[in-house]
């Protein structure tokens, strides 16, 4: 059974891009271990010759012509941006 250590919890949080404090990481470890331990009952089931099922929608994805069907909505796209300038999203400095 998976035991998630404090370090492992921090690594997962980092992958998920969620800031955690040391105290939070202490609690996350046992919390995740508890859930993963419960999930691991699946291991007892033999699924050797079973194809994975990704989606139940039995639909052939339709093709369409590669052409522009909408656009000209810069203002709509930026309407909810926390910060924008001259038609662009603004982010903290990325390149030094």
């Amino acid at each position: 059974m998976s035991k998630i250590s404090k370090e492992e919890a921090k690594r997962i949080a980092k992958l998920a891009r969620i800031a955690v404090t040391d105290e939070e990481a202490e609690k996350i470890g046992p919390d995740l271990s508890n859930i993963l331990g419960w999930i691991e009952q699946l291991a007892e089931l033999n699924t050797d010759n079973v194809e994975p099922l990704a989606n139940v929608a039995n639909i052939d994805l339709k093709k369409r012509k590669d052409e522009v069907t909408d656009g000209d909505m810069q203002q709509d796209v930026l309407a909810n941006a926390p910060e924008s300038m001259e038609g662009f999203f603004v982010v903290p400095k990325v390149v030094e």
Partner: peptide, 19 residues
């Protein structure tokens, strides 16, 4: 925190802002 919704930016880099 870039295209919509809450942004918490405390002056760090882009990853700090995401987290």
């Amino acid at each position: 925190g870039v295209r919509y919704g809450l942004r918490v930016d405390e002056g760090g880099n882009l990853n700090d802002m995401y987290e």
